[in-house]
Design a protein around this nucleic acid. Structure first.
Lengths: 259, 259
DNA sequence: GGGTAACTGG
DNA sequence: CCAGTTACCC
């Protein structure tokens, strides 16, 4: 069994205790983290080592930052997407475990429609697709995980009417995310559960998590070769609902594979 | 027995747990606090009430702020020194318990010799003496406590050579503080222990507390009528040496009276 | 609402 | 070194 988790932790320094508590509950083999909000040298390598994880970290001060913590050593580890315009930010890290590629990405938030950050988000998706074209083939075994900052369908938000034209739900963004599916990925959660309403992110404001007012913006995408190995995908809201230590606004998503 | 304590807590919001732990050790009847660093409405009135204290609070956002927490109700509570120039900051609070006046003051730090804040400190002392002249008589029973931000004598600093011309030790400042003694106050600690070397403040920097590199800048001053009632004065370093919760850089000073 | 940084006061 | 602040990001 191979369990691959993705979790936007919103600062690894302030969240590491929670992460280790969660790993006791769900000791996944591979944990992909986003929004480390710290430089690589501040990453808690030793704490993860004690639990048997080797960590591959692409840190950044204050913003972004991604890591893969794996029980198995990775090869061909890469950072960024080979595009200088976007690689000034630490949003992508990947590597290979035998014939399985892992890619962990923190896609831009976008802020609001029409602004500079909104176009940056769309352009990032564009650049990411080009990176896929250059570096991979849809016939590869690839697990692409991360915070995509887009809810794919209306079923992926708690209220599509209330959230109309809010960031993460707009047609341009959904189209950008769908290009990853068009390229050759399958949304593992939706593949197994076509009608299930589950969210991975809830705003800190107004106790949204208690009213389950969330969005599904964190994903496990897999290429077709992996579909037969996919056993389950689940969102663990335990860590999001904890009050002490304080939670991230995202919950971890876990994919279970039998390879 | 009446125990009166003075403690610069360096933010009551971040120090309240420590204060309540300390009150279990030394349940003083009257606790005078300085550097609340918060507005009056954020003061933890309820926590103190649970322990039987009535609190008189003169708060301020971010800087200064003083309070008297008393097991007995006070009358004629006043805030400030009646001088608009200095009363824009919350540095003084006082009140009367029967025939005993309590005055709690946080004197300015002064930063360094020659600067604006240095003259402000000296002028504050001047204005404070004028306030005493206007409002009190040396024949009154008065307990004046607080962070005076001045070490009276060389014996009150860990190394007068090293600290020469550093803030809190300079002749101008000592002269300003001595004017309170000239007015009619007695330094209760020094009265009982003429040769004792004890400090009330240690810099956070460089682990000064562990090397006992401190200064005595927090005082219990009393008028002559109270000398016969004075039983003891002690500095409790317990709270300063605690690591969890984090300490203030000042230790509480306690005066014990038999009235 | 919760994290970061840079600044200021002590 | 340890508080507080404002400003920025999500």
């Amino acid at each position: 069994m191979l369990r691959v988790a993705t979790w936007n932790v919103n600062s690894i320094r302030s969240r590491k205790e929670l992460v280790f508590m969660w790993l006791e509950r769900v000791p996944v083999e591979i944990l992909c983290l986003q929004e480390l909000k710290t430089e690589t040298h501040n990453f808690p390598f030793l704490d993860f080592e004690r639990l048997g994880y080797k960590c591959y970290v692409h840190g950044q001060k204050a913003y972004n930052g991604v890591a893969i913590c794996s029980k198995f050593g990775l090869e061909d580890v890469f950072k960024g997407i080979g595009d200088a315009k976007f690689d000034v930010e630490s949003r992508v890290i990947g590597g290979r475990l035998k014939d399985l590629w892992l890619i962990n990405c923190y896609f831009p938030h976008g802020e609001e429609r029409g602004g500079k950050k909104f176009y940056y988000k769309l352009e990032f998706y564009d650049a990411f697709c080009k990176f896929l074209d250059r570096s991979f083939s849809p016939s590869d075994k690839i697990v692409l995980v991360g915070d995509m900052n887009v809810a794919l369908e209306d079923i992926d938000v708690y209220d599509p009417v209330v959230l109309k034209d809010t960031i993460g739900t707009m047609p341009e963004e959904r189209q950008a995310l769908r290009r990853l599916l068009d390229w050759g990925f399958v949304d593992a959660f939706r593949y197994l559960y076509p009608n299930k309403v589950e969210f991975t992110w809830w705003d800190y404001i107004g106790g949204a998590v208690w009213k389950n007012q969330g969005m599904r913006i964190d994903y496990i995408f897999i290429t077709e070769h992996l579909l037969k190995s996919l056993k389950d995908v689940f969102v663990d809201t335990w860590a999001r609902k904890k009050r002490q230590p304080k939670p991230s606004d995202h919950a971890p998503v876990v994919g279970v594979f039998e390879l």
